[in-house]
């Protein structure tokens, strides 16, 4: 089950800096591990994470197999205007999850 958790404040003052913290259910299988029969377990990772705010990409990350399973990613944003914050995880085997939270800016 594709499943993500996003912790972000619901409101902020204009100009205030807020922290966005995320967790995603994903095995982050490195592609370097051998299974019981000795053959390599194929790589299955989240390759990219991005955040857009009010339609503009404000943060982007390229992940490698060295990112821990069930990736935790935390970063910051400067609150500008009330608007959707769209978080997107994409990866191997067609993995794609999107989650939207709304920030009310006073």
């Amino acid at each position: 089950m594709a499943n993500v958790l996003v912790s972000a404040p619901k409101q902020a003052r204009a100009g205030e800096i807020v922290e966005i913290r995320t967790l995603a259910s994903h095995p982050m299988e490195t592609g370097f591990r051998a299974g019981t029969n000795g053959t390599l377990i194929p790589r299955d990772i989240v390759r990219e994470f991005s955040c857009s705010y009010g339609g503009v990409t404000v943060f982007r990350m390229e992940l490698s197999p060295a990112i821990a399973a069930n990736p935790y990613i935390a970063f910051h944003l400067r609150a500008r205007e009330t608007g959707p914050i769209v978080l997107r995880w994409t990866g191997d085997n067609g993995f794609s999850v999107e989650e939207t939270v709304t920030l009310q800016v006073a």
Partner: peptide
Amino acid sequence: DDAANPAMLWVAE
């Protein structure tokens, strides 16, 4: 910290 604890992914499910 619930926002950092991976077990909370299972709780959400």
